[in-house]
Design a protein around this nucleic acid. Structure first.
Length: 458
RNA sequence: UCCCCGGUAGCUCAGCGGUAGAGCAAUCGGCUGUUAACCGAUGGGUCGUAGGUUCGAAUCCUACCCGGGGAGCCA
């Protein structure tokens, strides 16, 4: 249905009615097949159908939600509101709707639409989200392809315990009512499908490190699972994550990669989804287009954690959680920094060692690690990444300091002992990126089928 | 998981101790090259669930369920 350059010729359109306006002599149907925000206006002159008595009754049934098949001539529209329209020669009602069709030709609340997971994708907003998601996914793959990153298919089921990435969903085939038990009464996981406890992956990072130390540059793009009981507009139990990992890359290069990545994806979306983004700008978040253009054109701000803390302390603002060096930045701190202080995306680097994961590269000051977060206005943290600790002795010491048993991570240490090199990567929450570029307030409305605590429809 | 707010017609909401309302949708009719069209009429609700207070509860109290906002955790 994407608009053609010129009128003329016989065309066929199959889709669903957004709205129907019936007059005495003429009916107007707005047909959409979901390929674009704007539908196509179909003009049905009643006299043309007068030879078909059945059509008179069928026309009555044409209303919002119906599926139709239209054949007619594409002509320039005489009226304002659309460039082209179809003068119908034949309109066939393929799928009628009942009186109780729940989507109306008016604005619905997103809360209500969430109760209609099987129909909400037909709404303007969710349809636009679907198209922007698709365009963003393509832009992401294009970005990495241009930079010679291999797409790595990391496993969804894992037996790794990825420290610090939240609690995991267990994967098991054991009978929950009567699992096999060892002599001491504990569940005997050796009899489970994989012979040991298994989980849905919370991150592909560790596998990506393995691959990066073989193929230099890789990225994963796939679903990720967190069993955290998080009830916010920014968290899902199942979400998509992009995780590049590159050998011979330090933190500065990692931050540059993240910045180039976000700016290129935004730039491409501005080029490829102008209609949908204009809709979000008008209906969802005023000023969105200007903000995105600003992101595409302006370099991100960068500062160290230490610097960020100093600026927060000098801000004169009273925060609910006081700022002191050594504690992680709170949401309110991140928001002040990106939304009010620098007013654009911001990369904070070199966080205190104790607030970050054990695998991050320890700086010479022994107090901070080579970590970075990309903070964007409105959404907050969109990227978290680091240069990884590639020095085996330091890595093992940090595991012990963190209270971890190095034994299960033997392979991880071995990767460093055999041809280890400096390497770095980051994780980007795909849905948060979509929130950022669409202005959608709730993450549940930027994924077709959201999974959250207590909710997993379809 | 914690704090706050809310569940009244299909949808969005008003009513906040005295027996249920509006707009939109639906149904019927009218009008119109219309644009979330417009005009008129009609139908439609055991007021989230269960208890309690009261002569009387949508309205006050308690518990639970569901939804939203914020926080924590993080992407």
């Amino acid at each position: 249905m994407r608009a053609r350059e010129a009128a003329g010729g016989r065309v066929r359109v199959q889709g669903w009615l957004k709205t129907a306006r019936h007059g005495k002599e003429v009916s107007f149907l707005d047909v959409s097949d979901g390929s674009s925000l704007a539908g196509l206006q179909v003009v049905v002159a009643r006299e043309r159908e007068s030879a078909n008595p059945e059509f008179q009754t069928e026309l009555q049934a044409l209303r919002t939600g119906c599926a139709v098949d239209v054949v007619g001539e594409l002509v320039e529209s005489p009226a304002a509101g659309q460039r082209f329209e179809i003068h119908a020669e034949r309109v066939t009602l393929i799928g009628p709707v009942g009186d109780d069709y729940p989507l109306q030709k008016k604005r619905h609340s997103f809360e209500y639409l969430r109760t209609l997971g099987h129909l909400r994708l037909r709404s303007n907003t969710l349809g636009a989200v679907l198209r922007v998601r698709d365009a963003a996914a393509r832009a992401i793959r294009r970005f990495f392809e241009e930079r010679d990153f291999l797409e790595l298919h990391a496993p969804v089921v894992t037996t790794l315990d990825a420290e610090g990435a939240g609690s995991q969903f267990r994967v098991t085939t054991l009978d929950p009512a009567a699992p096999p038990r060892a002599a001491d009464g504990a569940v005997d996981w050796s009899q489970d499908f994989f012979g040991k406890p298994a989980y849905l992956s919370v991150s592909g990072q560790l596998e990506a490190e393995i691959a990066a130390l073989a193929a230099s540059r890789v990225y994963t793009f796939g679903p990720t699972f967190r069993a955290e009981n998080s009830n916010t507009s920014r968290h899902l139990a199942e979400f998509w994550m992009v995780e590049p990992e590159a050998a011979f890359l330090d933190l500065e290069g990692d931050a540059t990669l993240a910045e180039d990545f976000i700016r290129q994806v935004v730039r491409e979306l501005l080029e490829r989804c102008p209609e949908d983004l204009a809709f979000f700008d008008e209906r969802i978040e005023k000023g969105l287009l200007a903000a995105l253009a600003h992101v595409a054109e302006t370099p991100f701000e960068r500062m160290t954690y230490t610097d960020a803390v100093a600026r927060l302390e000098q801000s004169g603002r009273s925060f609910e959680f006081p700022v002191t060096w050594g504690v992680d930045l709170q949401s309110e701190h991140e928001r002040w920094l990106s939304e009010e202080h620098v007013r654009r995306p911001l990369i904070v680097t070199d966080y205190p060692r104790d607030v970050k994961a054990f695998y991050m590269y320890l700086n010479d000051d022994e107090r901070t690690v080579r970590a970075m977060d990309v903070l964007v206005p409105r959404v907050g943290e969109i990227v978290g990444g680091s240069q990884r600790e590639h020095r085996a002795d330091r890595l093992e010491r940090r595991m012990r300091d963190a209270g971890l048993d190095p034994a299960p991570y033997g392979w991880y240490l071995e990767l460093r002992r055999h041809g280890g090199v400096p390497h770095a990567g980051f994780g980007l929450g795909f849905e948060r990126l979509i929130q950022f570029v669409t202005g959608m307030a709730n993450i549940r409305d930027v994924i077709p089928f959201p999974r959250t605590p207590g909710s997993a429809e379809f």
